[in-house]
Design a protein around this nucleic acid. Structure first.
Lengths: 108, 108
DNA sequence: ACACCTATATATAATCC
DNA sequence: TGGATTATATATAGGTG
């Protein structure tokens, strides 16, 4: 994209990589919000900046929260995350109709 | 984008909204993977399809996992999610250097 | 590092099949 | 419905200040 094609591997030059990170991170967050708004779906995006300061960038769609998203993720994948102090683990969880799960590896 | 501009609000026509959801969801997952690979950062994306079947689409960058991402999110935001069966809650958690947190509302 | 610029690569809305 | 197509809107690589 832009003035040249980009190989899909880690950019070795530190300056270029940081510049690209800033641009693409903003683009990705914007597109995440657009998808949530245009299609009215729930979604969450987490991006960690590993520059040593440990910055976090995230987006969570309107009318939901990360705790809800994680609960739903848990109920679908059985990964069993738990919200501290509130016991969400009960026998009902896995009695719901099991939703279908897709991921990028099978659906790109 | 495409042959016309799109207002940034929920698409009311069911057929259009579903078509757009499929296209943009694939685009977003692709861009999430590109950001992770090009910049070597950890990230995760969760998208729920609210069509009644409860489908989930997700991407998690290489060399990490949702449980790790959520632990890191927790340590930054103090939201205190917990991985079931393993007690991650100890007094060390909040003694770490507090990382900076950004989100789309302040950094779009 | 950050913002702006501009040429190009991509994403995708509308359309057709 | 779910792919192709194609015209256009957007994203962004590379460059400059």
């Amino acid at each position: 994209m832009g003035r040249g094609r980009t190989e899909m591997k880690r950019i070795h030059n530190d300056v270029s990589r940081r510049a690209t990170f800033g641009k693409r991170r903003r683009g990705l967050l914007k597109k995440a919000r657009e998808l949530a708004v245009l299609c009215g779906v729930d979604l969450g995006l987490l991006v960690f900046d590993d520059d040593g300061a440990g910055k976090l960038f995230d987006y969570c769609s309107p009318n939901t929260s990360w705790s809800e998203l994680i609960e739903r993720y848990e109920s679908i994948t059985n990964h069993k995350f738990q919200f501290q102090g509130i016991n969400h683990v009960d026998d009902q969880v896995n009695k719901q109709t099991p939703p279908v799960m897709y991921n990028i590896h099978t659906h790109i």
